[in-house]
Simulated assay, not measured.
Amino acid sequence: MDNTRRQLLFDNVDWTPVVSAIQASSSVHLVTHCMPDADGIGSQIALYVALKQLGKRVVMHNRDAIPYICGYLEHAQEIKSGVVDLPQDADMVIALDAGSQARLGMDSSHFEGKLFLNIDHHISNEMYGDIQLIDDRYCSTGAMIFDLLIKLDIPLDAAIASAIYATVITDTSSFRQSTVNGDVHRMVANLIDAGANPYESARALYFSHRHERFLLLPLALSTLTIDDEGRSAWMYVDASMYETSGGSAKDTEGFIDYARSIGGVCVAVFIRREEDSWKVSMRGDGVNVGLISEQFGGGGHRYAAGFSTDMGLDVLMASLKQSVTRILNSSH
């Protein structure tokens, strides 16, 4: 696609340090957060293809395997995970969509002796690394890569466009978030013109779930409770539900939307068991759930945030409900 047809989403972002670092590098590792989602994976793939076009040696590596819904993306199977032998000649690591270095789930030795870049759209980012570009105005980290590629003068191709499209459609909940505006839709038009296929993307991201997900879903829905005079909705999944259904944490993607879709609900909370901890996801409608998340050591966005904790479920629920009630009462 002709670069002249693309416009920056934000023209007041200083990409110079990132562009200069990339131009000076020769071998790059791309990483994203634990339990990666489509934004992390799509951002990796889009930047991977772009850096390869620049003649860089590039490796994509994460602690955890890609989610099955991202398997349709070209180059997804080239992403390494777990404990693997990686090339030792990398001079740069770029972390994508990870709010903290701890969220990468990798030993600090992985980053030693390398220039460390941190690109993310979460306002709660802990500003780790040598160079940080953090901007929560972007609807996804993949949208940041869209602007970066303009600065690098890299044209879109079908692989890049499809990867960025996946980041946008998932992180905006199919264009339902407040970060969506006309510029986002113009970007999406560019992506489609370059080869992103909305039908194939939707089929892979939303209509390719494992059947275990639908055995797990009614168990999760059975925990649904409404509190705060109808203003908060709560759901959870524990280890026994995984065992009963044959499902896993990966099958719970989007479960929070059931709580969120109830009329009058301003805060939706979904809690799921992950190995030896609980992962809490929150969505707010006019309520800053990011403030609640920060109280528990987490982060995210104003209206979409989360954290992990090793509290017991009962203690967690009691403490979290106090925080939710407090912020709801202060918001009205």
Rank of each mutant, 00 (worst) to 15 (best):
E275H: 13
A268Y: 01
V267W: 02
G264H: 08
G306M: 02
F255W: 01
R272Y: 07
E274A: 02
I271E: 05
G300I: 04
M282W: 04
R272T: 15
D276F: 03
V287G: 02
Y303D: 14
A305F: 08
Y303W: 15
V280T: 10
D285K: 15
M282T: 05
G284L: 11
G298I: 06
E253D: 15
G264D: 11
R273E: 11
G300H: 07
I271T: 09
V280M: 09
D257T: 13
G297N: 01
R283G: 07
G306D: 09
E275P: 00
I262E: 05
Y303T: 13
V289N: 06
G264M: 12
E275Y: 07
E294H: 05
Y258L: 06
G290S: 07
I262R: 07
D276V: 07
G298Y: 06
S281M: 04
G299L: 06
F255N: 00
E274Q: 15
G264A: 04
D285R: 15
H301L: 12
S261I: 03
G300S: 04
T252P: 01
V289S: 00
R273K: 14
H301Q: 13
S293R: 03
Y258W: 02
Q295I: 05
S277W: 03
I271V: 15
V289M: 06
A304G: 11
A259C: 03
I256M: 08
W278F: 15
V287I: 15
Y303M: 14
G290D: 11
H301T: 09
G286P: 11
V265I: 14
K279T: 09
V289L: 04
A259M: 01
G286Y: 01
I292M: 08
G306V: 04
G297Y: 09
N288F: 12
R283H: 03
G297K: 04
M282L: 15
R260L: 02
A268C: 09
H301R: 11
A305M: 12
D251R: 01
G306R: 03
G298C: 10
D276S: 13
A304M: 12
G290T: 07
R302K: 15
Y258G: 00
V287C: 12
G290Y: 09
I292E: 11
F296N: 09
S293D: 09
S277F: 06
D276C: 02
E253V: 02
D285G: 07
A304Y: 14
S277L: 14
E253F: 02
L291N: 10
D251N: 08
R302H: 09
A305R: 07
G299W: 08
